[in-house]
Simulated scan of single mutants.
Amino acid sequence: MRKTHLALLTLGATVLAGFVTATPAAARDYPWCAQGGEYDYPGECAYSTYEQCQASVSGRLLFCGPNPLFAYGQAPRPQPRTQRRTRPVAPY
């Protein structure tokens, strides 16, 4: 019974150490981004060449643009979101 507890404790510590030392993917460190459609600004920045980006966005109603973090060396400011005004619907 003691060996089982020790084995489970060791396994738990190993898994926890794996989560602590894991680093997030650096997908925003590439110079080209797929933009538009389902992606917020700056988009999916996972392409090292413009051609790679073009191949990925082909047929997806997206476009390729430069990564502002890579191009300008700073984080972009979030764009303020404006409320969309809707016209009240008149009853018939």
Rank of each mutant, 00 (worst) to 15 (best):
P80A: 09
S48E: 15
G36V: 09
C53T: 06
L16D: 01
Y30A: 09
F70V: 14
L8N: 05
G59N: 05
Q54N: 01
A75S: 13
Q54P: 01
A25D: 13
T21D: 05
T49A: 12
T86N: 07
G65P: 02
R60F: 02
T21Q: 13
G37L: 04
P68K: 01
L11K: 02
P80H: 09
A13H: 06
H5D: 06
S48F: 14
A90G: 06
L62W: 03
T4F: 09
D40A: 11
G73D: 04
L11F: 13
Y39T: 04
Q79K: 13
R60C: 03
C53L: 08
N67I: 12
R84C: 11
P42V: 03
T23E: 10
V57N: 01
L11V: 10
V57A: 00
S56K: 10
T82L: 12
A34Y: 03
R87A: 08
A17H: 10
P88E: 11
P42T: 04
L62G: 00
A46T: 08
R77W: 10
G36D: 00
L69A: 02
D29M: 06
T23C: 05
H5M: 13
L16F: 11
R28Q: 08
L16H: 09
V57R: 00
T10R: 03
L9Q: 11
R2M: 13
S56H: 14
T4Y: 02
Q74E: 10
C45W: 11
N67D: 12
Q79V: 13
T49S: 15
A46E: 08
A25T: 12
G59T: 01
R60K: 14
Y30S: 10
P80F: 04
Y50E: 03
A26I: 07
P68Q: 02
T10C: 12
G12S: 14
E51I: 11
M1K: 11
P91H: 06
P91E: 05
R87N: 08
T49Y: 09
E51V: 07
C45L: 03
G59A: 01
L69Q: 00
G59M: 05
T86Y: 11
V20H: 08
Y47C: 05
G65N: 07
L61M: 11
S58G: 00
S48M: 09
C33A: 08
Y30L: 13
S58M: 03
Y39H: 15
D40V: 08
T49E: 12
C64L: 06
L11H: 02
Q83K: 09
L62C: 00
S48P: 01
R28K: 07
S48T: 06
P91V: 07
W32P: 03
A75M: 15
A17W: 12
C53K: 07
P68I: 07
D40R: 11
G59I: 03
G43S: 03
V15S: 04
P78Q: 01
A46L: 10
F19R: 02
L9K: 11
G65C: 10
T4H: 05
Y39N: 09
T86K: 02
L9S: 15
Q54A: 06
K3D: 13
A90H: 07
A34K: 06
A17D: 02
H5S: 10
G12Q: 02
R2F: 14
D40G: 10
T49W: 12
E51D: 13
L61R: 15
G65M: 10
A26E: 15
Y39E: 11
A27M: 01
P68M: 05
C33S: 08
F70S: 11
